[in-house]
């Protein structure tokens, strides 16, 4: 299992993480080593075994859709890096 530079760049793009040249080299090596170790899983017979997403079996938890007080806009916007009126300001989505 060896991750190529192209594969590392592809994953970084999927994760939307900008990597430096140094990180690309390092992650390509380190992730390859880890995945090589994790190959051990392929030895386990999981024929007919269902996947576990959560360890304590609960039924789907439903609740009534009741109106309740929420946060005032000011409380939520207080942490915004950039804002305009009661909105988060973002970079242009369409150019």
């Amino acid at each position: 299992m060896k991750l190529s530079r192209e594969e590392v760049l592809h994953i970084a793009r999927l994760a939307r993480v900008d990597l430096t040249e140094d990180e690309i080299t390092r992650y390509s090596e380190q992730l390859s080593n880890l995945l090589e170790h994790f190959e051990v899983l392929q030895q386990v017979d999981t024929e007919g075994v269902p996947p576990t997403a959560q360890s304590v079996a609960l039924e789907s938890v439903m609740r009534d859709d009741k109106v309740a007080p929420s946060f005032p806009p000011e409380a939520i916007l207080a942490n915004a890096p950039r804002r305009e009126a009661d909105c988060f300001r973002v970079r242009p989505v369409l150019e």
Binding site: A15, R16, V17, D18, L19, T20, I76, N79, A80, P81, R82, F88, V90, R91, P92, V93, E95
Partner: peptide, 22 residues
Amino acid sequence: GVKYGYSYDAGSMWESMEKTRG
């Protein structure tokens, strides 16, 4: 980089997001 936290603010939306996370 929009709602809270460290934010890199330059270039396109994708570029700023990738640089924020990077």
